[in-house]
Amino acid sequence: MVSKTLSKISFGLMIFFAVATDKVLAHGSVINYQTKESIEIEAKFDNGTPMKNAQVVIYSPSNPTEAWLTSNTDENGKLIFSPDFSQQGNWSVKVRSAGHGTVINIPIESPATEADNSKTPEIITSRSTPPQPLNATLTMTQKLMMATTGVWGFVGTALFFSRKKD
């Protein structure tokens, strides 16, 4: 009797989870930067919330495997650092907070000429890949397989606990 009731509940849960189409709630991150005498980065989650006290690791173009600087963003998700402008190439900046983050490459080129100094600083944005809704990435066959294994687990557990004890 107990196993039939649990089996019906499991089947109902299987149908519910197979048909449910709500999106997974998650967010990516956005990093902006400006190059002046120093570089200011601003890290935010996709919803605009600053990435407070996020871990920042900066790699120079001459040694992209060893951290050149390790620091944290401030309460507004900002960090200012002065790279060695003699090291031309892409400076990689990795920002992570609460399992979210992204990497941005900041190109450092030869010293600017006076004509170039009249330009306003360019603001560049790097955006991590937005998360896909779970249902958009799974086929119906995959959903049914997952639901079936879930039901199998529920039924197996119910049968285990409803067995007669000697």
Rank of each mutant, 00 (worst) to 15 (best):
V95G: 08
S62R: 14
K78V: 01
N105V: 04
I124M: 09
D46G: 10
E66F: 08
A54C: 08
A98K: 06
N135M: 11
P130A: 09
T129S: 06
A20P: 03
K52M: 12
T49P: 06
N53H: 15
T102N: 15
N90W: 03
A26G: 12
Q88C: 09
S86I: 06
T129P: 02
G99P: 06
I31S: 01
F45M: 01
P83C: 01
Q132A: 12
P133A: 13
T125L: 06
P107L: 09
V95Q: 02
S7Q: 04
V103S: 10
I106S: 00
T70V: 13
P131D: 10
T141Y: 08
I15K: 12
N47A: 09
N63I: 08
L69F: 00
I31G: 00
D46R: 02
D84A: 10
S29H: 05
P130R: 11
P121H: 04
Y59M: 08
M140T: 14
I58C: 03
P111F: 15
T21M: 13
Q55L: 12
M51I: 05
S38C: 07
F85I: 06
P111M: 13
V103E: 13
I15F: 14
F11N: 05
A54K: 00
K8V: 06
E42W: 00
N32V: 04
S126N: 08
A20N: 15
N135F: 13
T5N: 10
I80S: 06
V19Q: 11
T129A: 08
A26P: 00
T139G: 12
T73W: 02
M51Y: 04
S97N: 11
D116S: 14
V103L: 12
I31W: 05
P64Q: 11
T35C: 01
L69A: 03
K4G: 03
Q87L: 15
N90T: 08
N76S: 05
M51K: 01
T35W: 02
H100N: 10
A112I: 09
